[in-house]
Computed example of a mutant assay.
Amino acid sequence: MNQIIETILNHRSVRKFEDKLLSREQIETIVKSAQAASTSSFIQAYSIIGITDQSKKAKLAEIAGNQTYVADNGHFFVFCADLHRQVIITEMEGNDVLPSLESTEKFMVTLIDAALAAQNAAIAAESMGLGICYIGGIRNNLEEVQRLLKTPEYVIPLFGMAVGYPAKINDIKPRLPLEHVYMENEYTQDEDIFKKQLEEYNEIISAYYKERTGGSRAETWTAQMGQMLEKKSRMYMKEFVQKQKLNLR
């Protein structure tokens, strides 16, 4: 196993950072690593906004559900789905690109491109000995995030990433068993096998939580997911996305 794979397999979310900012060189290396990710048809349909204004970080922390590590970290990145620069192509080249940009397909491209770039950034940061935590909570109120970051039409802030020097490192959270995720040639649809694998995984996760919390928490993964998914959240998203002129067709 090489060092890159070890870095990937040792990933865990970090939610407590030392009071130490990243250097400009570290920030630029992380962004360049993000840019090196694959991108559909070379569209490069994302942008990354670094938040250095502490008052803005504090506001984003509030929007994200008062997550203190959104404000207290070495650097905070916001990854955006971005087709705004492609709109400019209409002015530069005279092509009618809007019907294409407003399609569901191009919306999916922006999401995939941004996610690929972000994961490259995460691996780069962790390879430097830094910790990261993805922050989906900024989607709690994207209109407010949009005002705060001054994003135009065809741009959607998707998620944040807190990066910094870890002050506390948790154990690695066990993932689903490989055989439950990886299938060959066709999708496995034997529900008895699925349920057996999930029951075995429930035991692993329950033991993990017991160990991590000294016995105060021991729920299973399926119970956790069932309770979480039963709650409706961010149901405004379709309307918000379409107001940005994306996913219209």
Rank of each mutant, 00 (worst) to 15 (best):
D82F: 09
C80V: 09
E153K: 15
Q3P: 00
K32D: 15
P174S: 08
I193S: 08
P177S: 07
G74R: 08
G74M: 07
D19I: 04
T52A: 12
H84L: 07
L9Y: 07
N120F: 05
S23P: 10
M228G: 02
K238F: 03
F194Y: 12
A37G: 02
E18A: 06
I135E: 01
Q197C: 06
F194G: 00
Y187T: 08
P152V: 11
C133R: 03
A207R: 10
A122M: 12
L22P: 00
Q227R: 14
K57H: 04
M108E: 14
N95I: 09
E186R: 13
G129T: 07
P166I: 03
F240K: 03
L9F: 13
F42V: 11
R85V: 10
Q227V: 08
D192S: 05
K243A: 14
F240H: 11
F79T: 03
M225C: 12
K245E: 12
Y208A: 05
V78H: 06
F17K: 01
F159R: 06
C133F: 06
H84A: 14
P177V: 08
A125M: 10
L116H: 09
E28R: 14
F76G: 01
L22C: 00
K231D: 04
L248I: 14
S127G: 09
K231N: 12
Y46S: 00
F240G: 05
F77C: 04
Q227S: 10
T110I: 03
F77I: 00
L149R: 06
I193N: 12
V87W: 03
A167F: 03
E126H: 09
H84F: 14
I169E: 14
K231C: 01
A115R: 02
I88N: 07
M1C: 06
I8H: 09
A223V: 11
A64Y: 01
N140H: 10
Y154A: 01
I204R: 07
S41G: 00
L246H: 08
T68E: 09
L116A: 14
G137N: 08
T39R: 04
E28M: 14
N247V: 01
A167D: 15
Q67K: 13
E144M: 13
P157G: 05
S40H: 09
M225D: 00
A125P: 05
L246N: 12
K210W: 01
L142P: 04
E219C: 13
R139C: 08
T90F: 03
E102W: 02
Q224R: 13
E211D: 13
M1P: 11
V78A: 08
T52L: 12
M108A: 15
G226E: 14
E25P: 02
L178H: 04
I132E: 12
E199C: 09
E203I: 00
N140L: 03
K20Q: 10
D53Y: 11
H84R: 15
E203P: 02
K16N: 09
K195H: 11
E25N: 07
F17V: 01
Y201M: 13
S55K: 15
H84W: 11
T213N: 01
R24L: 00
S103M: 10
A118N: 08
S47C: 01
E153A: 15
N141G: 07
Q197I: 06
K20W: 01
G74L: 04
R15M: 08
Q26G: 06
E199D: 15
